[in-house]
Structure formats: structure tokens, C-alpha cells
Computed example of a mutant assay.
Amino acid sequence: MSKRMNVSPETKWHELPIGGEVLDAGNAADFKTGDWRSMKPVWHEDKCKHCMFCWAVCPDMSIEVKDGKMVGIDYDFCKGCGVCTAQCKFGALDFVIEE
């Protein structure tokens, strides 16, 4: 049973949950966090060697892979950290301002 509660102006201080308490288990798959991004990687398929170094370092698992090859970037979850672009030795990823 969830401890989640509705808080309103009428809620008394002693009815509030303890600060910092996690009320419900979370899952990053439930939340599209890509809109936090101010910079984004852009993939150039023609330069890509499919070495998968970008996939190995992506903290958000946003590098899309099919049959052992990169097929794109999941921008719904990419936060624009730039780790993949720094790792790419072949110029297959650029880092640009999100527009």
C-alpha cells in the first residue's frame, strides 16, 4: 500500500511525511528526463564504426542498439551530459545546443 498523500493548505504540519522519505519506489523508465537537456549529441551514421564505446559510457542507456550496432539516440532519456561525444574517437557524435 502506498503512503502517497494529498497535501493541501489545510494539512497540519504533523500530518506531513518525514522530509527526505521516499514514499514510492521509482523507475527512470517511468519518467522522460530528456527535457532537462540544454546540449545534445547528434549522431553521424556515416562516420560511425559501431565500436560501442559511446554505449558503454552512457549513464542513461540512451544509445540505441540493434544487432550489435548503434541505430540512434533515445532523446526521451538523454540528459545531454556529453560523455558519449567525448568518448567517440571517429567524429560520429557532435555536441550541439538543444533548440
Rank of each mutant, 00 (worst) to 15 (best):
P59T: 12
M70Q: 13
M52F: 09
C54H: 00
F53T: 09
V65Q: 09
W43K: 11
H50Q: 09
H44V: 04
D60C: 10
E64P: 03
C51G: 07
Y75C: 12
D67Y: 10
E64R: 13
K47A: 11
E45P: 00
M70E: 08
V42M: 00
R37W: 01
E45R: 01
W55G: 00
I73K: 09
F31L: 13
M39F: 10
S62V: 03
K66T: 12
V57D: 08
G68Q: 04
A56D: 14
G34S: 05
M61D: 15
A28V: 12
G19D: 06
T33Y: 02
K40N: 07
V65S: 07
K69H: 07
K69G: 01
V71E: 13
C54S: 07
C48V: 10
W36S: 11
T33P: 00
H44G: 05
K66V: 11
A29S: 14
D74K: 00
G68L: 10
C58A: 04
W36H: 05
L16P: 10
L23N: 08
A29N: 14
K47T: 03
G26K: 14
M52L: 15
K49P: 06
A25G: 12
D46W: 05
C54P: 03
C54K: 02
C48W: 08
G68K: 12
I18V: 15
K32V: 03
M70V: 15
G34C: 04
V57L: 08
V22M: 13
N27T: 11
K69Q: 04
C48G: 10
W43V: 05
T33A: 09
